[in-house]
Design a protein around this nucleic acid. Sequence first.
DNA 1: AACTTGTTCAACCGCTTCTTG
DNA 2: CCAAGAAGCGGTTGAACAAGT
Length: 395
Amino acid sequence: MGRAPCCEKVGLKKGRWTREEDEILTRYIQAHGEGSWRSLPKNAGLLRCGKSCRLRWINYLRADLKRGNITTEEQQLIVQLHSSLGNRWSVIAGHLPGRTDNEIKNYWNSHLRRRIYSFTKTPTVKTGTDQPPPTAMNAAIAVGGSSTSPALVNMTVKKRKGRTSRSCMKKNSLVSSSLERSNKSSRPKRDVDDTQRNSLTTLTPVPHVPFIKDQFEGTKTQGSCADNTGEGIKEGGGGEMYDNTAKLSSLGPYQWLDSEMMRLDEFLMQGESVDLDVQLEGLEEMEREGEVLGLNHGTATETEKAAVVTVSCGESNGEWYNYSSSHKNNSSSSSGNGWFDWDWTSSVECCNQWDEGEKMLAWLWGSCSTRNDEEERSDNHSSPKEDPRRRSFTV
DNA sequence: AACTTGTTCAACCGCTTCTTG
DNA sequence: CCAAGAAGCGGTTGAACAAGT
């Protein structure tokens, strides 16, 4: 038997909220505070479902919501976080003050997903023989992230024929858009900013920051979590010590997430068994010491800490595995977690830098490895079934 | 001017997770 | 520990609208 509906649905209003409803809800919450959504409509005198009230408040009426377009910085952050976290919109929203999960989700679906997809699919992508094919990581570059690849700079994504994307249009303020909806005849036409329009179809040059992959060139030592104290690593795969303080210190907090993933990936590619419990302990210790995401970038928020622990070390629910496997599994989206929707087959077909698509796939499987020369790509030429990571992370 | 097509995003729905008794 | 209810989350929908024909 299914669950009872969250509230009595008979007679409840659905659809767009009116200005009057907004005012009633706002007044009520200002007087009584958030929460008790189930009883709120009745108490406030609204013919709405509690869930609807909650959504309206959280996504639209809250005073701390940021109005206006998503900035370039926010855009980059969204892509970067999405590459690490997948479709965890609420977690991603937690990193963007004033933005809601719904807003970010919509923005991703209507702006970024297609754009990044175009980036991976476009046959105009010309990379050198030593340039990696598109990955979730470097796809972030497509929206202005960092790259060592000059080939990516100024590369254009083909603009579809037809009308201008409405994404370029200025977003009305929350209240005014409500008013306009209730008074359509007075709705002003939204003008299009040419600069913004261009920015959607052209990859703009970005400051040179070493691609994250390069940060760990040559660091094949065993170990666990990064040590920011200069004392080295004392635990992990083989217990061997090394100090990567300088490298980590040069990274931003979100890059750090990726770099840690890569290093774990690297161990696994070498056939090392990584004990997730040990990794987790290491990170927790770092957290206690204020080192996690502290790295000259201020104090980590609770959300950030949670993201590090979840993404980097994983838990018994296989989150870590999902991350590393996202490069190869998500075209089928079997996990339902909504990882990047790459079409690997097409990507292989359109990529002309390697003779065999299989090699490319092998590279993708090991895309986080620090070994990037042709010889070592050949080492990764194993079929997916032979990927050593699977031995450690069978979910 | 009317119609068609493509895009956006607020809101809904159903499922999962959390909280409470 | 368990069950029920509340809250939260992510996928999906469809109205509204802009731009092309």
